[in-house]
Amino acid sequence: MTIMLMISWLLLALGLMFFLAGSIGLLRFPDSFSRLHAVTKADTLGLGLLVLGLSLQSSWREGLLMALIWLIVMASGAVSCQLLARFSDEQPSESATQQED
């Protein structure tokens, strides 16, 4: 039981790390494409790890619900990322790195 709890906390901490990395990427990366990349990648994996960690501490029904939430968030994240990238006016170029801070 305690081993399960330890694994769960480890997964939760790892998930938070991904969220942190994604947020830093969102703030620091130069153009919108790499920002999108940072946010969606990190959040998808981070949320997955959080769900996995939390489902180790909960009943199978709650775990299933959280897994469903994760699937939906992942899919909508993928779609909205593609939409944002498609309709952002920015061109992916090297000059973007110099233009913005």
């Binding site: 939906i72 899919a75 909508s76 779609v79 593609q82 939409l83 498609r86």
Partner: peptide, 15 residues
């Protein structure tokens, strides 16, 4: 409309 967002909206609506 764009094929990806259209198909996602179709997938999402029954849910």
């Amino acid at each position: 409309g764009w094929s990806l967002s259209i198909s996602w909206s179709r997938l999402l609506s029954p849910l």
